[in-house]
């Protein structure tokens, strides 16, 4: 063990604050290779520009694997969104990072409300395990191929999926019981 942790200035000097990394040509190529996928870069007025890949459900596992191959090997986030009146109703959003190149990408996939199921990516990213369970718990999206798709945040016997838009916020009237006055 060294006496103290090494302090290093990482390669951040190359990246100044305002300058965004150049548009990732590889992502564009990946989107062209996977059917139904497209690449877009959202300009951000006050922050960093965001690279987004949009893909349909069939191309999703292939695209995630391809993006992983392209160097985005850090699993960051997976969440679902319920757009309710839009078709497809749900969207699964995956955020990945590439530490070496300092890049971030977001993959958005539509999931229809009538058949809310999508392939699991836990074999590519083991870290997606809890996140997919969370999306299953709160949105009822079935991740096919997930090793242990059970409720994670709510009790096992819970009914419904609370973050869906047709699930009420829910409230219990508050009443004070057993409140005694101090003599």
């Amino acid at each position: 063990m060294t006496d103290a942790p090494q302090t290093e200035s990482p390669a951040a000097d190359e990246q100044t604050a305002a300058a965004d990394p150049p548009v990732d040509v590889a992502l564009d190529g990946l989107a062209a290779a996977v059917p139904g996928a497209r690449f877009e870069r959202l300009a951000a007025p006050t922050g960093h520009a965001q690279d987004v890949l949009v893909v349909d459900r069939d191309g999703y596992p292939d695209l995630v694997a391809a993006v992983h191959e392209a160097g985005y090997d850090v699993f960051v986030d997976l969440c679902a969104v319920d757009y309710l009146s839009r078709d497809p109703r749900f969207e699964v959003v995956v955020v990945l990072l590439d530490h070496d190149a300092g890049r971030r990408v977001r993959i958005r996939t539509g999931v229809p409300g009538g058949d809310p199921s999508i392939a699991s990516i836990t074999r590519v990213f083991p870290g997606a395990n809890f996140y997919e369970r969370e999306a299953f718990d709160l949105f009822g999206i079935d991740f096919e191929g997930h090793p242990d798709l059970t409720r994670i945040l709510l009790p096992d016997d819970w009914e419904g999926h609370p973050l869906r838009k047709d699930y009420p916020v829910g409230s219990v009237p508050v009443q004070f019981k057993e409140a005694h006055k101090v003599t």
């Binding site: 709510l154 609370p162 699930y167 009420p168 916020v169 829910g170 409230s171 219990v172 009237p173 508050v174 009443q175 004070f176 019981k177 057993e178 409140a179």
Partner: peptide, 14 residues
């Protein structure tokens, strides 16, 4: 005031 919380612990213990 939502689905997840017990609205007051006095519903469970005195």
């Amino acid at each position: 005031n939502n689905y997840a919380l017990v609205q007051g612990v006095d519903q469970v213990v005195p």
